[in-house]
């Protein structure tokens, strides 16, 4: 089956600044992809090119088997980062307008609007004027506008920004619902834990270049866990011996014990035995690498290695750099 989204060697510059550099991206149909990276990494520019709002200087784009999103807009739901509503317009006419622009109409449209508002917990707000809505309510209405036509591809740029935890959880549920319905979801965020919670696959960009592209499980497997949380059995125990172990890179105090960073290439199981030998522990745990840590690791190595942080052979970052047109 063809990919829902395919970007090949896409580059976009604004004056002297390169926003996106030779980006390769492929999102299979039915995928739930996180497009992550810090602010200014080029995510929004890449998404705008996907949506044919901006056009690449180089490279090709295919979206739902079309060369341009303009040819498939009715099948794409897009929640932009820069989003808003017509202040003087009421919610229902606004959604009706967007629905009609997306090719909806007839008797089906009105009940669909009602159901969509109910789903995001906004029953009865359809008569309100948009400038009467709170920020969270506006976000939800905008989400409804993006999904009203049950798109095949849903592109969400920072969908959780400005939402409280309850609304974030609710929206996360609705996104997963859309995915279960069969929609391909590409979710862009700079808040990496959010992507970690929801996505199956992660594409990480930094300074316009892709630095990671793999499914989350593989990433976790590939990134050798090198952080151990240790809580001594005796709170008063001398732990200075930990830092002197050959497997240990450094030790720092954590909430209830120590966070121990192992040297690269160390066998975690053997290292944990050595740690227990040095200091009896009430709790010892190998910490799963967080995306944030992986990102910092990749970027850190990239800064240290001007060759582009290609990573070690076999690692996720190595595969990522091979996939990234700009780095390969």
């Amino acid at each position: 089956m063809n990919a829902a989204v395919r970007m090949t060697g896409v580059t976009k510059t604004f004056g002297q600044m390169t926003a996106v550099a030779g980006l390769n991206l492929e999102v299979p149909r039915g995928g739930l992809y996180g497009f992550i990276g810090p602010n200014g990494a080029g995510k929004t520019t890449a998404i705008r090119m996907l949506m044919s709002i901006l056009f690449p200087d180089a490279g090709t784009i295919s979206i739902l088997d079309h060369a341009s999103a303009l040819e498939a807009k009715d099948r794409i739901g897009y929640l932009p980062e820069e989003r808003g509503l017509y202040r003087k317009m009421r919610v229902r006419p606004f959604l009706r307008y967007i629905g009609r622009l997306k090719g909806l109409g007839g008797a089906d449209l009105e009940p669909r609007i009602t159901a969509a508002l109910d789903r995001v917990g906004l029953p009865g707000v359809d008569r309100k004027r948009c400038d009467e809505l709170s920020k969270g309510m506006s976000q939800k209405v905008q989400f409804v506008a993006a999904t009203l036509h049950e798109p095949d591809l849903l592109i969400l740029d920072e969908p959780f920004s400005g939402l409280d935890p309850v609304s974030t959880r609710m929206l996360r549920g609705v996104i997963l619902e859309e995915h279960r319905r069969g929609a391909t979801v590409l979710l862009s965020t700079h808040v990496m834990p959010q992507a970690e919670e929801i996505c199956e696959h992660v594409v990480m960009v930094h300074q316009g270049r892709k630095v990671l592209d793999d499914d989350l499980a593989t990433i976790r497997r590939a990134y050798d866990p090198r952080t151990v949380q240790l809580e001594p059995l005796d709170a008063e125990a001398d732990t200075t011996a930990l830092a002197s172990l050959p497997e240990v890179e450094h030790v720092r105090a954590a909430d209830r014990g120590h966070e121990i960073r192992l040297r690269r290439g160390t066998d975690p199981a053997a290292a944990m035995r050595s740690l227990l030998d040095a200091v009896p522990a009430a709790r010892i745990e190998l910490t799963r690498p967080r995306l944030e840590d992986i990102f910092v690791d990749i970027v850190g190595r990239g800064a240290a290695d001007p060759a582009g942080g290609k990573g070690e052979p076999g690692s996720a970052s190595h595969r990522a750099s091979q996939g990234a047109g700009g780095a390969s």
Partner: peptide
């Protein structure tokens, strides 16, 4: 100007071409 300042323009551009 209102559509631009309200940031509704990108929502519209997701549905229609410029």
């Amino acid at each position: 100007v209102e559509e631009k300042s309200n940031r509704v323009v990108e929502v519209l551009l997701s549905a229609v071409s410029p």
